[in-house]
Design a protein around this nucleic acid. Structure first.
Lengths: 117, 117
DNA sequence: CGCAGGTAGTTCCGTTTCGATACCCAGTTT
DNA sequence: AAACTGGGTATCGAAACGGAACTACCTGCG
């Protein structure tokens, strides 16, 4: 396995194959807010140039992210979510909800989270 | 980064650090339906013994999965989602919804998915 | 009984992928 | 001109992964 495109697998497994990697998810999440530049992403995600470069290539290839080159003054590149990328927002929202319950910054519950029972 | 527990990161990034890996997600997803045995998971996920073993260890350590050893007849191990593991269901549901729209088995839309507008 | 076959892994090993660092080139500021 | 920023690529060691073999135990089956 570990193939990027395994038609045999059920849709959810294929989704996971595409988006189930730390950096891809982190980068996608980071681009939700607004389009960003390479070094901006590098700083905000903490990924190394090499890794970020690869991840952005992958995400572009898969159609989640698009690259915009601004040739005006000092050439600048911007990365944006495509429609396909944007379409992942609900997934991130769900992860966020989960995180709020299970990974609250101050309290890290080991058992059931005490969410106003 | 790539640390399993980075308190500085925002909750969603910390979530991604925990669950953002192909095998972890695939195994968790596979356990949604019902508790499963080691070799059952091995077959259904396609992971190697080595990988599956590691992933299950990780998931247990993080409290997503619990191991039940049935010593009765021929010793059998069962892996189940904990409450924490179950709590990820909405995330998988969301991924499933996304997959339906963007990774439909027969049609792989490159542009906007035609979901009965 | 003895051997094939299943379960639940672990060990070993080769390959692939990862990530940090260094480096590169262009433009810009000083 | 030197130093800095932006956007990467080249390199190389480390970690992850996959597969096959091996262990140890149990279960049929002839």
């Amino acid at each position: 396995m570990t193939a990027e495109d395994n038609p045999d697998a059920c849709p959810i497994v294929r989704s996971i194959e595409q988006i189930g990697s730390q950096w891809r998810l982190v980068v996608l999440h980071d681009l939700r807010e607004e389009e960003k530049r390479f070094n901006e992403l590098k700083r905000s995600t903490g990924a190394s140039s090499r890794t970020l470069s690869r991840v952005l290539d992958d995400l572009q290839e898969m159609g989640f992210v698009s690259r915009r080159l601004e040739e005006d003054a000092p050439v600048a590149t911007f990365y944006t979510l495509t429609d396909k990328g944007e379409s992942l927002c609900p997934v991130f929202d769900e992860i966020e909800t989960w995180a709020d319950e299970w990974l609250a910054p101050e309290t890290e519950p080991e058992a059931e989270p005490a969410t106003a029972d």
